[in-house]
Computed example of a mutant assay.
Amino acid sequence: MFSYKVVLILSIVFAIFLVSEAKVYSPCEFAQAMKNQGVNDDLGTWTCIASHESNFNTQAINYDTGDYGILQISHLYWCSDSDTPGKECGITCQSLLGDDITEDIICAKKVFSETVAISGNGFTAWTTYSSCGGDQSSWIKECNL
């Protein structure tokens, strides 16, 4: 027999689940968002990386590595684990978990450009790039970009 407290707790948990449901982008939605933020080159590669990193899930968190959001931005260098924005992108890691991926893209562009300066290839900042090398235009061939 359930008590009213158990029912109340289950109701609250269910309500939190409904409110915190993540947006999962389609490949074309993701590529369009990248383009809207000024990314015009290698959209197929970016889309492949987002697919492999998060399955396009805006609330993806890798608890083993501390990577956040649709592009799995690392808390080690780029976003702050606290409530105070910080690190290289000047944001909190929690801000990378919303449906609006503008901050994710702005930070990813910074990660990319700083990695270019170090290694010559900005995509190497993402470990999943090894699965996304070469021509990745098939990811966006059906998109109206």
Rank of each mutant, 00 (worst) to 15 (best):
L18M: 15
S130P: 00
S80G: 01
Q37S: 05
I105Q: 08
L43K: 08
S138N: 12
S131V: 04
E88V: 02
S82N: 05
A33T: 14
M34E: 02
S138K: 09
S138M: 06
K141Q: 03
D83F: 04
E29N: 04
I73Y: 12
V7C: 01
G133M: 14
N144E: 13
S80T: 01
M34L: 15
S130A: 05
Y77V: 02
L96Q: 07
E103C: 02
A108K: 12
V13T: 14
N40L: 11
S51C: 10
T58P: 09
S74Y: 09
I101G: 06
N57D: 14
A50S: 13
L97W: 00
S138W: 11
I61M: 02
L43H: 08
I140E: 01
W139D: 00
G120R: 09
T45Y: 02
I9W: 07
C28H: 11
E103I: 11
Q32S: 12
G38P: 02
N36V: 05
D104F: 09
W46D: 03
S131L: 14
C132W: 04
S137H: 01
Y129P: 00
I70N: 12
E142I: 05
S80F: 03
S26C: 08
S138T: 09
L10W: 01
D99L: 07
W126Y: 03
L96F: 05
F123Q: 00
G98W: 09
